[in-house]
Nucleic acid binder design. Structure first.
Lengths: 129, 129
DNA sequence: GCTTGACCTTCCATCTACTGGAACCCTTAT
DNA sequence: ATAAGGGTTCCAGTAGATGGAAGGTCAAGC
């Protein structure tokens, strides 16, 4: 299977697949013409990576998850630890963004948005209050 | 005022202040010894930038907001447009993260987290279901 | 006058996770 | 023969800093 077909079937751009090979997440063999030749197993790994990335896992997390996935002697606690830490980071990030949103929403709501220069948004940023 | 004091008073790391000068957000004059010499106005600009960044505005947004801040003939609609677009991006990002969180939370909740290899998190990532 | 330590300077590398593009090779159809 | 549509490598760039090396400056203390 050439990279184009793998890209179609995995949903990942060919560029990204090459990048994943570059950083050692997949190791497709090569044909005589230097083309990458993916099997079903590599395709499956890439799909796994795509889903993990879609859940926001970092590349290093993905590497760890993949290693665990392929380790028949894994402990589910190791998987859960990675996912739990990621969940905590997401919660933290959502909290940060929510606070930004609340502040911003109030400021935007108070701004007349007309041709006059007076603006509570700029007033807030300039340190008033 | 040297960069150290400005860093303390603005809350921004000296490195960041140098970076902001590098990309043209501030232009402190120099003393004979090449040290940056910040006045109250530069300090104020940096504090403005710090608050805008804390609200998640991009550097380019900050540049625009700063320009508007210093333009006495600005229209508040221009400010509101930048802030509104940013607010929409934040809302979108929160929605994305919330969806990740919901999925992850369910998966983590279902994972035994013990010494056994069976794991719904890996099962999901591998495409089961 | 000399050293010590806390400043300051520039410049280069690194981080995340790709993405774009140039220059070039391979295959197949016409 | 050539053109289209694959594939290849390699280099640069994105955002927003941050770390560190190598070296200049300044004030205090001996």
């Amino acid at each position: 299977m050439n990279i184009g077909e793998v890209a179609r079937r995995s949903g990942l751009p060919a560029k990204t697949i090459r990048y994943y090979e570059d950083i050692g997440l997949v190791r497709p063999p090569r044909d005589a013409n230097d083309y990458r030749n993916f099997g079903e197993e590599e395709l499956h790994r890439l799909a796994f990576l795509g889903r993990a990335r879609a859940l926001g896992f970092s590349i290093e997390d993905c590497r760890g998850l993949m290693r665990l996935y392929e380790d028949r002697d894994r402990a589910s606690s190791d998987v859960k630890r990675i996912a739990g830490a990621h969940l905590a980071r997401i919660d933290k990030r959502i909290a940060e963004l929510s606070e930004m949103r609340n502040t911003l929403r109030d400021l935007v709501r108070c701004c007349a948005g007309d041709a006059r220069p007076d603006c509570p948004i700029l007033a807030d940023l300039s340190g008033a209050g």
